[in-house]
């Protein structure tokens, strides 16, 4: 079935980058209920998607929530509508990180020597790939 096009160009580019259809979400809240970071994440997955449905992408892009996703893929696994919020959050971060102003959350300068010694490099690779431009 064909979908009505999203109103906002920003939402359209988030849909293109994520491959997800924002209108598919019927706001059941399963994603937020299962999200291990949901309590700390503002907005949590379902609310973030609602903002996009309402054409308020700017609010989501300015939020802290998209920077708290651990890419655990629970939300997409449990969504009864086949919507994967992890991919949407990544698309939102991509939009922000590709802006000409520096907006990454992590980098070599944010890591302490002690953490550098201790934490597995797997975590640095993953964190820098998700949270720096």
């Amino acid at each position: 079935m064909s979908k009505p096009p999203s109103v906002s160009p920003l939402v359209r580019s988030i849909e293109a980058l994520s491959g997800q259809v924002i209108a598919d979400c019927y706001q059941c809240g399963c994603c937020t209920a299962g999200c291990p970071i949901g309590e700390a994440m503002d907005p949590p997955p379902s609310k973030a998607i609602r903002l996009l449905q309402l054409g308020r992408a700017g609010e989501l892009l300015d939020s802290e929530g998209i920077w708290l996703c651990a890419s655990c893929m629970v939300c997409g696994t449990r969504c009864p509508r086949g919507v994967d919020y992890a991919l949407i959050a990544e698309a939102c971060r991509a939009v922000v990180l590709r802006r000409p102003v520096r907006s990454g959350r992590v980098g070599p300068e944010t890591v302490t020597d002690e953490d550098c010694e201790e934490i597995p490099q797997q975590a640095f690779m993953a964190s820098f790939r998700k949270f720096s431009g």
Partner: peptide, 18 residues
């Protein structure tokens, strides 16, 4: 359930809780 993964790098508080 997620352990918090790479959030340990900049949000140790969140990863610790998970």
């Amino acid at each position: 359930e997620c352990c918090g993964g790479y959030l340990v790098v900049n949000r140790k508080d969140v990863a610790r809780e998970s």
